[in-house]
């Protein structure tokens, strides 16, 4: 599990790599919390390199979504591979998040 962070036009883009489950979702939670506590209102998550995501990691994303929504922010999910998209779909999470094909398209939402 690895999380890379970059910033484009004040929008933090977190690229998630590897497996996110009950063991690793704590790190994801800490990273997202630190980004939100650092003042980020909107966040883009690049999911292209996610091998696996479990319900505990989905819960972390939902908690973060609730946090950014307090400041009228959003979390955009970008570049979801089909196996990840299926998890979000089954879990009913596709309807909760903004979803874009690429990070570039995601960034346009914030313009």
């Amino acid at each position: 599990m690895k999380i890379e962070q970059r910033q484009v036009n004040d929008i933090p883009i977190l690229a998630l790599h590897g497996r996110f489950d009950a063991m690793t979702s704590e790190h994801l939670e800490e990273r997202l919390k630190s980004v939100i506590d650092g003042g980020a209102r909107n966040i883009c998550l690049d999911l292209n390199a996610v091998e696996f995501i479990s319900s505990s990691a989905l819960r972390v994303l939902l908690t973060s979504l609730k946090e950014v929504k307090k400041n009228e922010g959003i979390i955009v999910l970008a570049a979801m591979p089909s196996h990840v998209r299926e998890v979000f779909d089954l879990a009913g999470f596709l309807e909760l998040f903004a979803v874009q094909e690429t990070c570039e398209e995601a960034l346009k939402i914030f313009e």
């Binding site: 009950a22 819960r59 299926e86 879990a91 009913g92 309807e95």
Partner: peptide, 21 residues
């Protein structure tokens, strides 16, 4: 209905829900 109820269940749960399609 399943999507909404599953999302709520994941939110309220505290370990893993493994969904098998």
């Amino acid at each position: 209905l399943t999507r909404y109820q599953t999302a709520m269940a994941i939110d309220l749960h505290d370990h893993e829900i493994i969904l098998i399609k």
